[in-house]
Design a binder for these strands. Sequence first.
DNA 1: GGAGTGATGACA
DNA 2: GTCATCACTCCA
Length: 173
Amino acid sequence: MRKVLNEKFFARDTLVVAEELLGKFLVRKCGKREEAYLITEVEAYDGHLDRASHASKGETERNKPMWGPAGYWYVYLVYGMHDMLNMVTGPRKYPAAVLIRGVGEFRGPGILTKALQIERTLNNKKADKKTGLWIEDRGVVIQKKDIQKSPRIGVRYAGPIWAKKPYRFFFKV
DNA sequence: GGAGTGATGACA
DNA sequence: GTCATCACTCCA
């Protein structure tokens, strides 16, 4: 079973999408080579009230993709060095996204974007085969009991309520 | 624990 | 135009 996930899948509740992304495959096509990586760790950023989300500052030139249709990539540079890969989720006009933090053997959002050569040129591009970066369901199912949750990483500035939300999802090994 | 790094957004 | 901030990684 190989199904390319589209707006219909991503336009649902961000927390549901984030959890269901575990076990899906991130597929990268560079030239003729096509490689698929199991998604192992994600974080949800849900709505403009979420103080850890870029969307909490309102719509700006940078975070504009978060307000757009689901199923698009939101890629930005942080700390002057690392590109972060996010999938836009939720309905149109509702700012939300899921940060892809780990795929395959790669641990850490900055490491995986470097390994897969994911750059800001992909920002605001649709996740499909034409773009060269998309997500597939290949029939892998992660058991509910194997999924762990924790607060998100690197968002202490968001204040006690939002910094503590268990919006990070990953597998129990 | 602390440096490196540069785009971004807020303010003037 | 200036300035502080930042969804990270690596080395000590």
